[in-house]
Design a protein around this nucleic acid. Structure first.
Lengths: 175, 175
DNA sequence: AACTTTGACTTTCTTTGATTTTCAACATTA
DNA sequence: TAATGTTGAAAATCAAAGAAAGTCAAAGTT
């Protein structure tokens, strides 16, 4: 009710949400943070302020941070508690170790479809992959594609690894 | 009885069903969705809302989606669960013959890496795939990528199928 | 026999609130 | 005055509740 008002206000005010879905607070908060970061690629947040602005629980901010601004996507978070506390969010630009870091990130453990999406998202932002390539690979890596497999996660890791290596090779060739 | 009333109401209200047959909810839902899609060839549904409107089980919506809006018929479905969830449906109009032929060609039987290469070659010639895309997908479909799998060939078929569908979807988006 | 309808159960994603941890600033003591 | 408590303001964590969509199989229709 109060919440709804806030949501609609933001819709109108920012012209978000026309796109699709976009009907939950998490997405709105994500958009807000993204636009705050655009330009410098960095921003400093006050958790409680944000929670206040969006009229939600403070922990919701953490939820958004943890689900949308992950290391996979190339984001890094620093924060400080206590009086004058803050949350600093910034994007790590891919440098020398770019591909190695990504490959390390998917080494061992299981690799979910979601995580793959995050990684590809990052690659797109950094201009190393196109939107279309992501779509095609996403199709290849989807649960549906791999439903036949005995160990989906392991397989996905294997495929993703080869793809990243392929991409790496490809960028080398271009220079 | 309550149900019937709803049905008749909708018949009257929407002027559907004149055709004949048309006597079950699934058909009505199908018509409703079709008319929602007319124009843009796309629509976003809320499963529960729809189920509510037609006074039926939510899973009936899935039934309609699965039986009437299939890939064969050129439809594609995306969805999201949880708060703010939705179902996005859209029609892939162009290239129907083309893609269906390819999909049929890989249906059943096993699919070798080589055969994949041939198919992709053809896609490139027809201007539907770039050299780079082929490379990336080749990496994904390689024996090495799939070495973990129990049944490589079957898996490859599954992946390739989804990729082709993805490609099909994409040709839509561009026009 | 084939197609529909329903409902119970599952999975995924989001929202909330209670509790815990950390920090800076201020206060106190030796 | 350096060291040590104290306190209140943040942020973090975690688990439970909520919201939607998906699955599957049994029961009903044609």
């Amino acid at each position: 009710m109060d919440l709804k008002k806030t949501v609609y206000f933001l819709r109108g005010a920012r012209g978000l949400c026309g796109e699709r879905g976009m009907s939950n607070i998490s997405d709105l908060i994500e958009q807000f943070i993204l636009s705050a970061m655009s330009g410098s690629g960095e921003t400093i947040l006050k958790r409680n302020d944000l929670a206040n602005r969006f009229d939600c629980a403070s922990s919701q901010i953490n939820y958004v941070l943890n689900t949308r601004f992950t290391v996979d996507k190339g984001y890094s978070i620093e924060s400080r508690r206590g009086g004058g506390g803050y949350i600093r969010l910034f994007r790590m630009e891919g440098g020398e170790e770019y591909f190695k870091t990504i490959l390390n990130g998917i080494k061992g453990g299981s690799l979910s479809y979601n995580k793959c999406t995050h990684i590809m998202q990052r690659l797109i932002i950094d201009g190393l992959m196109t939107e279309r390539e992501r779509e095609l690979l996403a199709a290849a890596l989807s649960d549906k594609s791999l439903s036949v497999a005995c160990d989906k996660e392991k397989l996905r890791r294997s495929i993703m690894t080869e793809v990243i290596i392929g991409l790496w090779k490809d960028t080398e060739r271009e220079d």
